[in-house]
Nucleic acid binder design. Structure first.
Lengths: 409, 409
DNA sequence: GTGATACGTTGCCCAAGCCTACAAACCCTC
DNA sequence: GAGGGTTTGTAGGCTTGGGCAACGTATCAC
């Protein structure tokens, strides 16, 4: 239990303002005054400091408004960026995401086979080195990595990433040593829920459950009481291994009768006669909705009922406001959301069910880039006074009007 | 997102110190300096304000120490009290709990039959009125009620308390109107986990799961990231309704195959040939451990295996540090904790299982009194500057040495 | 006693948010 | 387009609360 002194106070107030403009988009100084409850002059001083540090920009006021002196718009800088990395079986994706929310770059580096840790670090470092050159006048805060597996929160050690075949790999340390940038990592689904929480379906809500169905299994994440719940070591949200049947099918961890064992993308594709590699999320959803095959429909119903058991468990346990479904789970939801609702209702306490809705994810392919960048931004958002000088030549107090648009997600 | 001004700062620092001495017991000013990181002079000023407000007392220093000037001991007052109330089927229990942790009084008012809301309010008000007279020189902060049922967090409405037969009863409003004291209420198991978290098996931990087995079902509570997770409306922690089998037994909510349907105290008592009413928790535990009946042992094993499914779900979902079992679930654990561990291990991710241990609750019969009092204290702990003047004649700056012992729980 | 150590106390400093007065920039009306 | 009403930024002084350093005080060890 730490006490708070004057420095902490200032840091906290700077943090609050930077978070507001980062998460909720640009806001006028007058709006910031109302939102924070702080005095006009205080807001002025705080914004001035953030401008001085190059973290926000003040734009000319919006013309269309009511009476009174117009208030300058405060917007997060789009020259302060984080690098988001997502290693997968068939590719490594790297993105450059600005504090303003703009995704400046998106690079997909295809891999012939699942990358080893060394390959992943080498390839990422290569791309980052190139980016550093290209983004000379940008300030690169750090790197956030979305890993499809369990990541230890304390040090970013990848405990187990089954599809990549990684076990206890010190990804963060390796990447930090190779690039010279601070690196943080977390489970991909946990970052997904962060992204949906701040910028997607869960905006403004405090209790979210997120489940994502991917080609290799089901993962998830939690927001509880307004904060992302990582659990003791960072492994929270593994809904895929919830037991939902007495069946003998096993999941990637070898456990029988789990959600991940019973509800699979593979089975859906097989029933539809589609090829796994060539089918993206939208195609699968359209095919499922369009199909009139009773076999497909039976399978969908079966999977929905199993999904309902897992969701009901989460509802009874956590009393969430919203359940967000991503990946092929969103496709299942699209086919028959009513069946899912009814099945969940039958297995939950009425009072808890009354509080919850089930909805598909709204963020598309940029989801993990945004989530991973958010992870990298966290240190800066917590302490805007920290040194973020990775570029010596960042021109401060630039009067160049931002040519990029508002947050695009 | 609220900004912080100077008043908030002071309030927060007072809050931190009051929480420390309340939760972790008395501490010297020097210890407070180290724990909070604040300056000696600041601690002096803060403690002086808390003494002035009658919330803490300074005692003469501990004699046995090293060199140096002895530091006065700061202890939470035991004349600032909350009233804890727990209505049950067969009795209403009322306790007087001091900020220091001392339980001054414990009154059990036996009921011939389950109390209606009106009876509960009338009886409680009667006891409270008497207590107010008796505790003339004490400062009564408010009333905290532990309700065996779902309680809406926003206003303390009892949504559904099945054993008491209460539905949508405005308990808090009624009791506040009748007694003139502030009243807060919450689910009993949620308060149980609060108590275990601050004063019991979960001290100092951040991610706890608590399950309590009572005569009428299984409830629970969560601590996630160091704070009690109440969920959206306050209904979180209802582990009893987690589906653990494909069986047809139903629970109190009419859901089949749930933990509460399969794992019951009643079945254990029946197998042991014991009478429900006359058997307390310790007796049941002793009888279970002592029994060499294969029927009993089979039943225990069955129940342990079902319990393991529910616990495994929680472990995969929440990655907790500790699972605390109370009531007859602790008795099951006492019979064969190894079987439970093995069964949970088989259903969880190894990385998550490695972080968790399963332990019985350590707080006994005072559990709910302490939890309910904690709920009532929360407002004061959050803002020690608030007016708590329910007694005009509270003698401040009393030099009377406290005759009561250190926290007894 | 004397020194060492640890801690409370006191007076001063400073940072940061608030307040007040005033100026600036918009709207609307005539 | 001049003037009133409204909202907001700005400048300067005020207040508050925590930090700091010097000093006083209580203990232990010898």
């Amino acid at each position: 239990m730490q006490g708070t002194n004057h420095d902490d106070l200032r840091r906290h107030n700077l943090s609050i303002i930077l978070r507001l403009v980062h998460r909720s988009g640009a806001a006028s100084r007058a709006q910031l005054t109302r939102l924070t409850g702080l005095n006009r002059s205080t807001i002025g001083a705080l914004v001035a400091e953030l401008v001085e540090r190059g973290l926000v920009e003040e734009r000319t006021p919006d013309p269309t408004r009511l009476a009174g002196r117009p208030s300058p718009i405060v917007a997060a800088s789009d020259r302060v960026v984080a690098i988001a990395v997502n290693p997968e079986i068939d590719a490594i994706t790297v993105g450059v995401v600005a504090l303003s929310g703009v995704v400046h770059r998106l690079i997909r580096y295809a891999m012939p086979s699942s990358p080893s840790i060394t390959e992943a670090v080498t390839i990422t470092t290569g791309i980052v080195t190139q980016l550093k050159r290209d983004l000379g006048e940008y300030s690169i805060i750090g790197i956030g990595v979305a890993v499809p597996g369990l990541v230890r929160a304390t040090d970013g050690l990848v405990r187990h990433a089954p599809h990549l075949g990684w076990v206890d790999e010190p990804l963060c340390d390796l990447l930090a040593a190779a690039t010279g940038l601070p690196v943080v990592a977390a489970n991909d689904a946990s970052l997904g829920v962060t992204a949906e929480h701040y910028f997607g379906a869960g905006q403004g809500l405090t209790d979210l459950v997120y489940l994502n169905g991917g080609s290799s299994g089901i993962g998830g994440g939690l927001v509880i009481g307004g904060v992302a719940a990582s659990g003791r070591a960072g492994y929270a949200g593994e809904f895929g291994h919830t037991r939902v049947s007495a069946g003998t099918n096993t999941d990637s961890a070898g456990i029988a009768g789990t959600l991940e064992a019973e509800v699979t993308r593979h089975a859906l594709l097989a029933a539809l006669g589609l090829h796994a590699g060539a089918t993206d999320a939208d195609t699968l959803e359209r095919a499922l909705v369009a199909s009139d095959s009773p076999v497909v429909r039976n399978l969908v119903n079966r999977q929905l009922d199993f999904l309902a058991i897992a969701l009901a468990g989460a509802v009874n346990m956590l009393n969430p406001q919203l359940i967000v479904l991503g990946g092929f789970l969103a496709a299942l939801h699209a086919v028959d959301s009513e069946r899912l609702n009814v099945a969940v209702a039958a297995l939950t306490l009425p009072a808890a069910f009354a509080e919850v809705s089930i909805t598909p994810a709204v963020l598309g392919s940029n989801l993990l880039m945004i989530g991973a960048a958010e992870l990298a931004f966290e240190a800066l958002l917590l302490d805007p006074q920290q040194d973020q000088g990775n570029t010596a030549g960042l021109p401060r107090l630039s009067s160049r009007a931002a040519e990029t648009a508002a947050p695009t997600f």
